[in-house]
């Protein structure tokens, strides 16, 4: 649905700043009807990427195709028409303070020159969809953050787009409101079949709604895959660091304070284990302990699921020796358990 082909964007140097390469040769294919998450730290180039999809940003090289249409090759007026097929929501909502919820949702239809008689039922249906029928005549100042974002979502859907772009749409919201907005996005994806590309710096957001995820760093797409695979078996340190914020993945704080990078002067090693698929139900730990004769202590554990597929995370301690000769990790790999060394404690 969205094809990003070797996309680069260089902001040229100005009198005050040097040139910035915001995107380097990025390739992404977002499939029809999926929710694709892009995660990355501040300045990684996420917004630049998203803005290239609806032509707010002109690529330096490469191209973006949305439903087969080359966005960069359109004339101004064709681009405007194309943008009506691509909705967008924002971190700070970007609602007009001078318009009520109803009039904000009606705005893109007014831009499109749609008849008032057509606008009315459509806007009312959209307000109903996002659960704000009772706030129809309220101004943004009278709405909570979550309600404002619902208006933003209704507005983005007004022209019945095929694609919805979301730039940190939940970053200004509290965790509970975030979940309700994500649930709404998932529902829209499911019931209207809208393809969603969403940008975030929180793995929890990706894990809650996305089917696939791309990890960006310094303008590069450094890792990509099904959310389940990236969460359970991250391949890059960046991806791993985003997992750190997910529940059940933290090292207990008392231990974290005593953790050392080298085994010198310590006796025990900490590793994080990732269980996936059917193996997650096998008694791997007791076998590890029995067959290798190791003392294994479980320090932290969590079972979760992504898209109905379960996965488990355990933080365990082992004798240093079992790590030094690699025997424990070999054994675990045999059972398809992902391992990650965390450090050593005395």
């Amino acid at each position: 649905m969205i094809r990003v082909e070797s996309l680069s964007r260089i902001y040229p140097a100005t009198a005050k700043s040097v040139a910035v390469t915001a995107l380097k040769d990025v390739d992404i294919a977002v499939r029809r009807g999926e929710i694709y998450g892009v995660i990355g730290r501040s300045g990684a180039g996420k917004s630049t990427l998203l803005r290239a999809v609806n032509g707010l940003e002109r690529p330096t090289s490469g191209r973006v195709l949305v439903d087969g249409v080359d966005i960069g090759a359109l004339t101004d007026s064709d681009l405007r028409a194309e943008r009506r097929k691509i909705g967008m929501i924002f971190q700070h909502f970007n609602l007009l303070s001078s318009r009520t919820a109803y009039d904000n949702v009606a705005l893109p239809l007014e831009f499109a020159g749609v008849d008032r008689a057509v606008i009315r039922p459509r806007v009312e249906a959209l307000l109903d969809l996002v659960g704000l029928s009772d706030k129809r005549d309220r101004y943004p100042v009278e709405l909570s953050g979550g309600q404002k974002q619902r208006v933003g979502i209704a507005r983005a859907l007004a022209t019945e787009p095929k694609v919805l772009l979301s730039d940190e749409a939940t970053s200004a919201l509290d965790p509970e409101t975030t979940r309700s907005i994500l649930a709404l996005l998932a529902e829209i994806n499911r019931t209207l079949g809208v393809t969603i590309m969403l940008i975030t710096h929180e793995m929890a957001v990706v894990k809650d709604v996305a089917t696939r995820v791309g990890v960006m760093e310094d303008g590069l797409l450094i890792e990509e895959g099904d959310v389940y695979d990236v969460v359970t078996r991250p391949r890059t340190d960046t991806a791993r660091s985003f997992l750190g914020t997910l529940a059940g993945r933290e090292i207990p704080p008392g231990l974290a304070a005593r953790l050392r990078p080298s085994p010198e002067g310590t006796t025990t090693a900490l590793i994080r284990l990732g269980f996936t698929g059917s193996r997650s139900t096998e008694p791997v730990i007791s076998r590890l302990s029995r067959e290798l004769g190791l003392d294994v202590a479980v320090l932290q554990g969590q079972v979760d699921e992504i898209g109905g597929r379960p996965f488990g995370t355990l933080i365990v301690s082992l004798p240093n020796a079992a790590l030094a000769d690699g025997s424990a990790e070999r054994f675990l790999a045999h059972y398809d358990v992902a391992t990650e060394r965390l450090g050593h404690v005395a």
Binding site: R80, E82, R84, M88, L96, S98, L107, F111
Partner: peptide, 27 residues
């Protein structure tokens, strides 16, 4: 007027004149 509103309007497919008339001046 918040720059974000101009960007949002452009993303909605507004012409520059529509942005002036329906967004900038009312805001």
């Amino acid at each position: 007027v918040d720059q974000g509103l101009i960007e949002a309007s452009q993303a909605m497919g507004a012409t520059p004149f529509q942005i002036v008339r329906k967004v900038l001046v009312p805001e």
